[in-house]
Amino acid sequence: MGTFHQNKGELHGITVIVDTTGPEIFVGRCDDMDARGIFLHDVDVHRDGDAGRSKEDYVKRASRFGVFKKYDHLMIPRDRIASVRRLGEIG
């Protein structure tokens, strides 16, 4: 039993990795995705190479433990999105 949210996409409530066409990669809980972009809650962002970690290094660590959020909410415009993956599907 729990609360459920109608009229949202299949990624609603799912923690996703949003890679961009630029150096940033985001991890957050998807609220919804539409023509404007993807709306995330509790979002962390990593820039490729920061702290000596590539995007994939960052994703591997995030997949083990999750992320500390930097933003409560964020919208990433669609034209900046390169890919959206479920964090839980990263091995």
Binding site: I14, T15, R29, F65, G66, V67, F68, R86, G88
Partner: peptide, 27 residues
């Protein structure tokens, strides 16, 4: 460990030995 809910932490002799974050439950 980043805050996560729901999540499940498992301890042995007081040491955290396993953690299941929310994204390992979703879906």
């Amino acid at each position: 460990i980043p805050p996560s809910s729901p999540s499940i932490a498992f301890f042995k002799d007081g040491e955290l030995v396993y953690f299941m974050p929310r994204h390992r439950i979703e879906g």
